[in-house]
Amino acid sequence: MMLFMLLFSRQGKLRLQKWYNAYPDKVKKKITRELVTTILARKPKMCSFLEWKDCKIVYKRYASLYFCCAIEQNDNELLTLEIIHRYVELLDKYFGSVCELDIIFNFEKAYFILDELLIGGEIQETSKKNVLKAIASQDLLQEDETPQGFFDDHGLG
């Protein structure tokens, strides 16, 4: 089971965090700080896996973003790398050549896509087509709604 997933930039800015275990906020912050520092200090050709506390960390860098997952001792590291890759593929397909900015400005979408891929830290759907279909049907529901707030937004911050 995946324990959590963190996305952060080369500058160490956290872009997305998903926790599959209940940790107190303080602990979450501490874990994040520690891992961001540890991983940013690693060199490119190093192994993508680390032993950390009583779990394993699997991470991979895509352009300016680091994707970092914590998994349990028995979980499969290589396949966790491919969960990350599948997620990146989905983001890429959805946003069309995804970049860090897409995830910053549409963080809620990034969460929705992740929720279709993983539930409770386990992979729910491995087929790219099926996940995209699910996201598309969500979007379809939204398109029925009129963007009535558009005008209200002017004049507001």
Binding site: I104, F105, N106, P147, G149, D153, G157
Partner: peptide, 16 residues
């Protein structure tokens, strides 16, 4: 500012 999809919230994008 990054492009926002149709359902996006402009106010949010401005704030970000």
């Amino acid at each position: 500012m990054a492009p926002v999809r149709g359902d996006g919230m402009r106010g949010l994008a401005v704030f970000i």
